[in-house]
Design a protein around this nucleic acid. Structure first.
Lengths: 196, 196
DNA sequence: GTCTATAAGTCGATAGAC
DNA sequence: GTCTATCGACTTATAGAC
């Protein structure tokens, strides 16, 4: 980590922004270079191919999510509190890496083997850990008895699209975003009875 | 409606499936034709361009959502019941048009003017109607006091990604899907106190 | 209505001068 | 490390034979 040159970081950043706006296939090496005042050919002194840019961006995000998950697992809190921490993790990573996050929702399909399998394996492992926390919560009576796959999917799809919402509400603070999205995903929309 | 020839419907269907799997930009006219045992040039006897295929698919879905929304608005139920009906609408349209639905999450960005503005206008109008129902629910004390944009975004992102979940669980019945996703989005994951 | 042939452009990536 | 020039493959779309 951190041994990337300045130029390479600039290229990854330029690419991520364009991938987000246009998508991987609709973004050309010429566009990525043009944003940095370069010609397309110059990019190849710093990166091996367009494909490798996508791999670095996506596997980098995968690693960050797995690191965050490990911290949550080691926290020894109860499952509902762990769910709370996980939502915080997604919010934090979304605000820190908004462009890279957007690749998770769509452009990962353009990965080629073996990176594609590598990415899917990482994602499956993450989702399994997430699911385990939900199941623990049900067993302890903290979480409603809901179809587990549906609960997982429902949370993750909201969290994955948080970046597009944040792009339209840049004035909102991270802490406010975190509080409100937790209300939606954990407590639900329907009004709860006042406490007895 | 319904005045499309059989061939044209086949082309739209073939295109939708490929757009879903590969994305609009990564799908070529040759692939669309090949799935029907045709050469690419033959497609142009039935459709004007690749761009027009995307427009027909996306604006067609937009119309179906607006029709459904109108029925819900006219139903004279309370806001929480209307929310329930809207989730049912999304589930129904997802199961009926899984490929077309997938375009809503990503490939709409490849629409060109004036279709792009037309699509955005349709989507904004739909989201505004959706939001109005949530606000009514809050005013009537049926829905928790949550950031409205966040609540809207949270529900819609889960509903928009329902198709990808359904692709992995084709054995589940529509009625079961509807019941479980309503639990997630309306009641929330956190266990509620038993009724007094 | 489908075909072959092709126009006109863009793509990712490389070679080699400087 | 950046450039110009270029290759070969691929793209959407059209023209015209059948």
């Amino acid at each position: 980590m951190g041994k990337n040159s300045v130029r390479k970081e600039q290229i990854l950043e330029s690419a991520a922004k364009l991938f987000r706006k246009k998508g991987f296939k609709a973004t050309s090496m010429r566009m990525i270079a043009s944003n940095l005042g370069l010609e397309a050919a110059s990019l190849y002194n710093h990166i091996h191919s367009k494909q490798k840019i996508l791999e670095e961006l996506l596997l980098g995000m995968g690693g960050r999510f797995m690191e965050g998950m490990k911290e949550v697992e080691d926290s020894k809190k109860n499952p509902l509190e762990k769910l709370d921490l996980l939502i915080g993790l997604h919010v934090k990573l979304t605000l820190s890496y908004p462009e890279q996050i957007s690749l998770i929702t769509g452009d990962w399909v353009h990965l080629e083997e073996p990176a594609l399998t590598q990415y899917k394996t990482l994602r499956n492992a993450y989702e399994l850990k997430f699911k385990t926390i939900i199941i623990d919560g049900m067993n302890e009576g903290l979480i409603e008895n809901i179809d587990i796959e549906m609960a997982l999917f429902s949370i993750l799809s909201s969290l994955h699209w948080l970046y597009s919402w944040y792009a339209r509400h840049p004035e909102m603070k991270g802490s406010d975003i975190e509080r409100e999205i937790k209300k939606c995903l954990i407590s639900g929309l329907k009004k709860r009875e006042e406490n007895p």
